[in-house]
Design a protein around this nucleic acid. Structure first.
Lengths: 158, 158
DNA sequence: AATTTATGGATAATGATTCTCGAAGACGAC
DNA sequence: GTCGTCTTCGAGAATCATTATCCATAAATT
């Protein structure tokens, strides 16, 4: 996480340059986003924020996330049922690999995904804005757990 | 839509074989799904259903859609903000092209998308369950409308 | 330091989807 | 064809993530 500081400063600069205020809550949230390895949800960030600012509201988290999203500095990942996840380190569309058991989200290596959007744009005449490439499966860890005799109660559904 | 009848019968047979009852509401909804060109939402289907069954409940639509979804006979497309869309003709994952203006959903021709899931499965060790490949853009029609002087009031939603 | 104005916080509102549960009806058995 | 059982329907309440509201507070500029 040596880049976290640099990423945070980039976010802070961007927010200020766009004429928005740098409040302590925003600073803290941007630090969290910049240092997040995974893909936290708004509630995750809220929980972490409250450690520093006990009176912070969940609404503030959403407002800040939406601000950064409008600036194209965070990528919002919406899944039908579950709550949204946010990626503050790679704001541009990229493939995701989701474990339907433990909800872990990682970045698969999908070389063939390069240029897909451009290809579709040419063939369809659409003006491309964004895209999603998500794979849903069961991660090796969860596969193992499912095979084991019965360490705990079994999982219900995906 | 000469296949609509065949598709409907396939759905009906499947439901019956799985030990579920064929109620008039389900029959009507399956006919709608089988004959739908586009990707209707639950509310769309509800509106159409009420023409035949004025007392039908929206809950029934959802229950039937979930039943068919569990049988892998309809594909549910969930988008963060908007309501879900359903495809009763192609239940297997396939790419979609969404116009963010008029909400139209079409099927782009993406040859390179073949085998992506298998590739990710091999590299990651995940047991693949499903995937999504969605492109968001502005369709040619909506691009045109945006450029024109101002023919009418602009479109809000589909 | 004062002024202006965006922002934070608490809570209500929104809206799609699911749950609840009594009534009705589908389907197999007779 | 009729009956009985057990699924399914229907109407509305409940859920839950996200937004909207609205005023007190504090950031930035002078």
């Amino acid at each position: 996480m040596a880049d976290a500081q640099a990423r945070f400063e980039a976010l802070a600069d961007r927010v200020r340059e766009e004429g928005h205020r740098l409040t302590p809550q925003r600073v803290a949230l941007m630090r969290l986003l910049a240092s997040s390895e995974g893909h936290p949800s708004a509630a995750d960030l809220y929980d972490q924020l409250r450690a520093q600012f006990p009176t912070t509201s969940l609404a503030t988290v959403y407002k800040t996330l939406n601000l950064l999203k409008d600036l194209d500095e965070v990528l919002e990942l919406g899944f039908g049922h579950d709550d949204n996840r946010y990626d503050g380190n790679r704001p541009d569309p990229h493939p995701h690999l989701i474990c339907v058991r433990c909800r872990k989200i990682t970045h698969p290596d999908v070389g063939a995904a390069q240029g897909l959007a451009e290809q579709v744009a040419q063939q369809s005449g659409y003006q491309m804005i964004s895209h999603r490439l998500d794979f849903y499966g069961i991660c090796p860890d969860c596969q193992q757990k499912a095979t084991e005799p019965e360490s705990e109660d079994s999982v219900s559904s995906a």
